[in-house]
Design a protein around this nucleic acid. Structure first.
Lengths: 102, 102
DNA sequence: TACCCATTTGCACATTTGCGCAAATATGCA
DNA sequence: TGCATATTTGCGCAAATGTGCAAATGGGTA
């Protein structure tokens, strides 16, 4: 696993590793329709500007997707991307033993 | 997923979400024998005291185990624990849709 | 005992981070 | 156009974080 991969993965984990952001992700996880930011405000103890910033970071890390819809923005979770990234690490951790190339 | 679970998971992800710590984990991942801290120093750009602190945090989060051996300490990765935690989240993210209880 | 080596800890410092508030921006609607 | 609502951004602040250095600790060995 090269440096760049490690850095990218660290970025993703860091983005997920903050309670309010992880709560946002969990909330999006339980919805199968995109949600706007005001709606997402309810699930974490942060005001609208804070939620906006958290969502921006999550978006930058590819964790959520944004879709402009009128004056609202709809956020949805990039389920397969996030899950696959987590599994890449899980697989490496569980199965890699003494193998240089993996 | 209740608040406590989210907090615990966030703690784990946060611990993994720092480049040098993730490098340490990856390094331990590629070893099937426990490693001491001096040896682990080589894989990240931090001095011994920094590595010590990182390992302490990883240990607090249950990511690594420590074994005292003489004046050294041997660190090993808790592979199955970390992998399972990552998979819990991956599974939730990928499969949970509109199910309140999961 | 005296010394060496691995590791931890206290300290100071710079940087990052998360936050609320208020103002700015964007967009729909009357 | 004027207003209401949704979201973003600038600002300042307090707390957390990562780091190196030097001293302290723990334990092996001559």
């Amino acid at each position: 696993m090269d440096t760049e991969t490690v850095e990218n993965l660290a970025g993703l984990l860091k983005a997920l590793g903050e309670v309010n952001r992880l709560s946002l992700v969990c909330r999006l996880c339980d919805c199968n329709t995109p949600q706007n930011a005001m709606c997402l405000c309810e699930c974490c103890s942060v005001d609208a500007s804070g939620v906006s910033r958290h969502l921006k970071l999550l978006s930058k890390e590819g964790i959520v997707s944004v879709e402009k819809r009128g004056r609202e923005r709809s956020y949805s979770l990039n389920r397969s991307y996030v899950a696959s990234q987590l599994r890449v690490l899980a697989d490496k951790i569980e199965w890699t033993e003494n193998e240089e190339a993996s």
